[in-house]
Design a protein around this nucleic acid. Structure first.
Lengths: 342, 342
DNA sequence: ATTAGCACTGAACCATCGAGAGTGCTAAAA
DNA sequence: TTTTAGCACTCTCGATGGTTCAGTGCTAAT
């Protein structure tokens, strides 16, 4: 459908647009990339590419700029060729700083976003695994105040969460230990989703309602395990505001709305986390109105098949994809190593 | 130095500028605020006010706009008169939503910032107490992996923090309990600052180095207590971007740089937290270059004399101060109640 | 001390114009 | 048949200039 020559021209246009702001004309392409073709020929090809939806004109008599579809083609051929960036030294230096934080996953992820945004000059994002599908490793209950208990949740993914829950009556630490023991024997090794179901089922049993220990245990679970959510970290908005792409206010508003709506971002990243390797969504592929001018490049850190975190970059569709892919890929691998070895 | 009439004119100009964007001229003041004076007289007064540094002209033959000093005078007289906003019902409705979160201070504060920004249409900020001056109530050590321990720190302010620390050798939970017991007996009731000093002192003692239990305890403390920092929550950037004040890119960049630099914001809020009641910093009073076009309205939640949290609003200097003060004041009182009753 | 009157100022808006970049089309060349 | 040169055309962008308008500062009268 697209002959070799058209492909080359398309990629040249996209590349040039990424490298230099401003629409790209036939003359530029003919000159800068040596096709041995005259501007007129390039013009014809570009007209064809426009017809096919890879390029568009901001206005008659301007050059062409890529559409989302154009970027997609470019990125796909980039990935196919494995033609990324490469200067590992710079990365390594920044990663070293993160080494010291490996014990505390939330601090690690939060700092990782800063590193990502520094490296890429785009927005860095990172997300801890979705609690719903995380598996509980252990729960500990510590008496906190007379009728409050701090529940410490450990997951197989290495997350540690603490939540305070209120009880209807005072309970001794000894009783709490018994309750915790019971909960661990029942729920350890199950995902939070499963546990929630079990709790609901258990609560409806006659037997449970009579056994005050189990009843208490279930109540605590209800409060402690519901409404858990992924932690998400975002940083580097000020980086992208320096880019010429963000000259207009509307775009900035959209972006800031999008990144403040953590819930939606979490869903987006979660959906991507089932795949392996670097995933890329370009412009409207995001399926979020506010994000239609932006691209997302992410990779999921996995231990076996289980996601243990997501890292990535958000930037304008006119993004240096080669560099972004390279950075995200390496950062994900680095974080994976740190989290798995932990 | 400023006679009654000048004061009134000054406040009228500021009020008008806050209510309607655009510089305010003598005619407007004379008309909208019934002084019984002609525009010409107002003009003279305004010229005086400019000379004294309360007002400024964007350009000759434009109206006047307030300087930071002008705002300051206005705000001071606002506070002196206790002349705030008042429709408590709206607030109450939003606060109810927060009630459910009272057990978990970080979730509470994070949601509070959203409420603040929704109410004010400016940026909401909230900060947990500075760990340095928080007092440790209890420390618990839970075995996490072979050579890792999760340290759970409880403070008198109601914070719960967990950190993972690495050990040089495996330690049993029983030993950990002994270590925790020792640490609690030694450090409970002391601030983290004090504890850090004690740890350093202890580490230098010959006796310590020989006692492997104490040595371990100190090592754990070192890792767990150092580099603690306040949690800070910020939200509502997209709200302020809708304001006409944020038409120009430079301002947006400054603001986003300022709120991404959490460290500096923490220092700023910390400095303000020693005072009681609503504190206001206008424009350049912030002493941060990036913040010179913005104002901060905060109030510290205290239990007795001890700060247990800071809540506030960041917005343009052209801010509805009466409303902002009202919102911050009430929110701080509400949060204080929730945290203290906990 | 206050005010009316008036000349003056500078931003904002609008229309116009020329330059420049780049196109599409046509006809000639390969 | 494909490629290219040539040319008319289109649209943006920046500069220019005129007009309007809000609001000032000053002066002289009240």
């Amino acid at each position: 459908m697209l002959n070799e020559r058209s492909k080359k021209v398309l990629c040249a246009v996209v590349q040039n647009y990424i490298d230099f702001p401003g629409s790209v004309g036939s003359r530029t392409v003919a000159k800068r990339y040596s096709f041995g073709l005259s501007p007129a020929t390039i013009r014809n090809i570009m007209a064809d590419l426009e017809e096919m939806g890879f390029l568009t004109q901001p206005h008659t008599s301007a050059g062409r700029i890529p559409t989302d579809r154009g970027y997609r083609f470019y990125v796909d051929s980039l990935v196919a060729e494995g033609d990324y960036y490469s200067n590992i030294e710079i990365l390594q230096g920044l990663y070293n700083r993160l080494e010291a934080l490996r014990n505390n996953i939330d601090v690690l992820l939060s700092e990782t976003t800063k590193t990502l945004s520094m490296l890429s000059h785009y927005i860095g994002v990172a997300m801890s695994p979705m609690p719903d599908i995380s598996t509980l490793k252990r729960i500990e209950l510590l008496k906190y105040k007379a009728d409050k208990v701090a529940a410490i949740l450990f997951t197989d993914e290495g997350l540690i969460k603490n939540r305070v829950v209120s009880l209807d009556s005072e309970v001794s630490q000894k009783d709490l230990n018994r309750i915790a023991g019971y909960l661990n024997s029942e729920f350890s090794g199950h995902t939070f989703d499963e546990i929630r179901l079990k709790v609901i089922k258990e609560m409806s049993k006659e037997k449970t309602r009579c056994n005050s220990l189990i009843l208490r245990a279930m109540r605590i679970c209800q409060e402690a395990l519901f409404f858990l959510h992924s932690d998400i970290f975002v940083s580097g908005l000020s980086e992208v505001l320096e880019l010429p792409d963000f000259a207009d206010l509307k775009k900035i508003r959209d972006l800031s709305r999008a990144i403040e709506d953590k819930h939606t971002i979490i869903k987006l990243l979660d959906k991507l986390s089932e795949f392996d390797g670097v995933q890329i969504l370009i412009g409207s592929e995001n399926l979020m109105d506010e994000m239609e001018k932006f691209s997302v490049v992410v990779s999921t850190c996995k231990e076996g098949d289980r996601p243990i975190g997501v890292v990535g970059i958000i930037g304008p569709t006119r993004m240096n994809y080669a560099k972004a892919i390279y950075i995200v890929d390496n950062t994900a691998k680095f974080i994976t190593k740190m989290l798995v070895e932990r």
